[in-house]
Design a protein around this nucleic acid. Structure first.
Lengths: 125, 125
DNA sequence: CAAACATTTCAACAATAGTTGTATAGTTAA
DNA sequence: TTAACTATACAACTATTGTTGAAATGTTTG
């Protein structure tokens, strides 16, 4: 994953409205939700929601499909998982056991760390 | 995890500098890095790096410890994992098998989410 | 066709984030 | 103490983001 991709995804999750909307869509899975239902669930104006959904969609985190006069949104779960993989990549230099001292309740590197990905470049913000 | 915690973490990862710095720290694990070494690695001005490290630190994603005249930063890996858990919570309504149709290269819910039931069905749209 | 509905776009404004250079604070060593 | 070093804080500026309500786009129904 390119760093610009990752930052744009994080940016898209950095608002309460967008995070709530995305989590709602993650819970729905492939079924997704139409925009109006998301607006009702979050109690947000259609205009504002549209603005935020556009941000999520531009980051690739959600997909849209027209359905009659509705727009159905779905979470892009594979991308979410790629992001997680990117974030946890090469944790502790590939020696998860050294994470032991940093663990809390969570299952650290060994549970989450994915098979690694070919090395990329390092652009800037 | 409270939503405000999550958004502030995402916000803190929404800049290239901060994401690079955090990933660097994740790779180092408990050893961490002092501010100057991070600045050299990223080729960023001390002033600007300080600004970004403060953001990461304020979000709780990194910890700081004074070490002589240096400041040693470490990634808060448990918090990172809590965030991942929060994001993937109740994926597909607790029926990960319905994620199957959304998968790409990534290992979906069963790798990351609490294990549930053996797969049995195809998704619907 | 026109009317009702679902959603997006736009414009104007307010609020916040990021950059740069300089000044300050704290630590160590001569 | 003074000087060198490491890092943070501040001020001024530019750029971006988010909110609001009204208008526009596109769809279905009568």
């Amino acid at each position: 994953m390119k760093i610009q991709t990752a930052t744009s995804i994080f940016e898209s999750l950095a608002s309460g409205w967008r995070l709530e909307a995305f989590r709602l869509l993650v819970k729905r899975g492939p079924q997704g939700m139409v925009a109006g239902d998301i607006a009702s669930a979050l109690d947000i104006s259609p205009s504002s929601l549209s603005f935020h959904l556009k941000a999520l969609s531009h980051a690739g985190l959600v997909s849209v499909e027209q359905e009659g006069r509705f727009q159905r949104y779905r979470a892009n779960i594979p991308l979410m998982l790629e992001l997680i993989a990117y974030l946890t990549e090469e944790c502790c230099n590939g020696h998860p056991e050294t994470c032991a001292g940093m663990r809390s309740a969570s299952n650290c590197c060994d549970a989450i760390l994915p098979p690694l990905e070919p090395p990329g470049e390092s652009p800037r913000s």
